[in-house]
């Protein structure tokens, strides 16, 4: 499909888009969290957004409600791999049970990026094949990139060290 325009995209997705914005030439579309896999599937299958550039989350504690926002950034290669069409899809996730559908079935590259979000924010990805912590230790019990994480509080690491000592497992 050549001659792709953002109007085609917004008319196809239509009611799924809650709001959209543009800043510094980047287009952001807000969708409902339960619609996220449907929207991303349409983008991948029908609009050839083959390359998942980035996947991350942001914690807006005390600024927005619901608290978390997932951010997907997609790229469309085009016929000659010379297009630079990129869109950002966002959806919000509530605090009490942060979970969302995994997109690893659409892009295999989402695997580690989702694990990183799980590791740093505690957002659970339903359907992820191997959801484990990736950068922090396996027995770590906090989520460092949440805004209420106390940077100066070193207690959790002490706790896990003591725990390891008491179990003789180190």
């Amino acid at each position: 499909m050549s001659g792709f325009t953002l109007e085609q995209l917004s008319s196809r997705l239509g009611s799924h888009i809650e709001s959209s914005s543009e800043f510094r030439g980047e287009n952001t579309y807000f969708v409902a969290p339960e619609k996220i896999s449907e929207v991303l599937t349409v983008l991948k299958e029908e609009f050839n957004f083959d390359y998942l550039v980035d996947l991350t989350a942001v914690d807006y504690l005390g600024i927005k409600s619901p608290r978390f926002e997932m951010v997907y950034y997609l790229h469309r290669f085009g016929e000659q791999y010379d297009e630079n069409i990129r869109v950002r899809i966002k959806c919000s996730i509530s605090e009490d049970k942060p979970a969302i559908d995994s997109v690893t079935s659409l892009w295999a590259g989402a695997d580690w990026l989702e694990r990183e979000v799980y590791d740093m924010f505690g957002i659970v990805f339903n359907g992820h094949p191997d959801l484990r912590r990736i950068l922090m230790p396996e027995d770590y019990d906090e989520y460092p990139l949440r805004k209420d994480f106390d940077v100066r509080n070193r207690e959790p690491s002490k706790r896990s060290f003591k725990k390891a000592l008491s179990e003789g497992n180190f």
């Binding site: 800043f23 510094r24 980047e26 952001t28 550039v53 980035d54 950034y73």
Partner: peptide
């Protein structure tokens, strides 16, 4: 606002997403 900027690093696309 929020931006993402990617550059072609020797190893691939390095991008910064800044809010």
């Amino acid at each position: 606002g929020e931006i993402y900027h990617g550059v072609e690093n020797p190893k691939g696309e390095l991008g910064y997403y800044i809010v």
